[in-house]
Write a protein that binds this DNA or RNA. Structure first.
Lengths: 207, 207
DNA sequence: CGCGACTTTGACCGGAAGGTCAAACGCCAA
DNA sequence: TTGGCGTTTGACCTTCCGGTCAAAGTCGCG
């Protein structure tokens, strides 16, 4: 019998291992070629399974992709959720930038999967963007606004401030090839970026 | 007889029109799905031509893609080339940011095509990145360095300064869907971005 | 008008893609 | 040890994809 994909019922060792291997391989392939450019054969090969075997664990290519995206979103938004309204404004924002850059460094495939999805129209996650993401951003934007009104950080359009953090941190994962090609060897892009972005946001937010 | 793709020999009206229609349609499709995700059938349909007709003007899918990329690179690097070593530092950099944002606004498909290409490993343009692009960036980085040493703008790692301009401006084209989903209706992302980025770079570069 | 060059297309090819299925395999509890 | 359930796979189906080709259509110039 085919295992239920979403159910949390007890999974066998083998199921856990294979489902994980498939998702990992799919992350490789989807993040490199986008949904349409990815093929089940390639995912199966990377996962070390046969294609029918792969389709024993997931009902379709779409299902694998969807599972990856939903699994990803939580990790991805976690740093923003952690931004604490009661903390010190500058420290909180810099910590957010730092955590976001860490995500880019440690989960570049996830970043590229997400970028690919948005780039290609986001049809599979548009609803989530307009609801979950938008609500979260609006909530945090209000926190930023309050800090600005209290004169604790510089007054700026809060949404665009958040966009700038996303853009600057994700750039190092999504455009990794370009960054390394331009910098040449002998550089640690992420270490340099960490210092640079700290300077940037310190200056931007200073009163 | 098949028309030579690259030659500048006199083209008939029809050739010019159809080649342009194909490149335009291909830009649509490639920028939305990446190279592997795009299909000739789809390009042909968008261009309003039959597939064999399309292959009468271009020898292959690759050839269309390559033509787009090479045509794109010049437009894309032009604003950076225009950065004038003899101009006023702050004014020059802000003008660069402004022009780059204009490109994102006016040529979002080109931006996404480029992003797709980098994201998917840039195998087709890696050499150009490591030579043409790198040389240009190094040259301009030296100009920035000189300005910094002369105390005319704040001292920062020049390459990362350039990356930040790319990241912040291209974000509004590449992640357009997300930006609009988060902002909701009643916003003009590019106008707001223009003002925000001017503030950002003014503060970042101030002595 | 007529003719040669340019343009367009329907039919087709081999291979790759997503997905199905029945049969075979293997693990483990009774 | 064996029966049964979970797992794996070879063969196959249909559709799609990049690309070819010969034949038909059209354009413009003398």
């Amino acid at each position: 019998m085919q295992p239920e994909p979403t159910a949390n019922r007890p999974q066998t060792r083998i199921q856990r291992r294979n489902r994980q291997a498939i998702l990992d391989a799919a992350l490789d392939v989807f993040s490199q070629h986008g949904f349409r450019g990815a093929t089940l054969d390639q995912i199966a090969e990377v996962a070390g399974l046969s294609k029918p075997n792969l389709l024993y664990y997931f009902p379709s290519k779409e299902a694998i992709h969807e599972q990856l995206l939903t699994g990803l979103l939580d990790i991805w938004l976690d740093p923003l959720r952690k931004l604490d309204p009661k903390g010190d404004p500058l420290r909180e924002i810099l910590a957010y930038v730092h955590r976001k850059l860490e995500l880019s460094r440690d989960y570049p495939r996830e970043s590229r999967l997400f970028a690919n999805e948005i780039l290609q129209g986001a049809s599979r996650i548009e609803r989530v963007l307009a609801t979950v993401l938008r609500d979260l951003v609006d909530r945090k934007a209000r926190v930023l606004m309050r800090w600005m009104e209290e004169g604790r950080i510089a007054a700026l359009p809060p949404h665009h401030l958040i966009f700038s953090i996303w853009a600057l941190t994700q750039h190092y994962a999504d455009f990794d090839v370009q960054v390394r090609a331009v910098l040449g060897p002998g550089h640690d892009p992420y270490a340099e970026a960490d210092a640079f972005l700290e300077t940037l946001f310190r200056r931007l937010l200073a009163i």
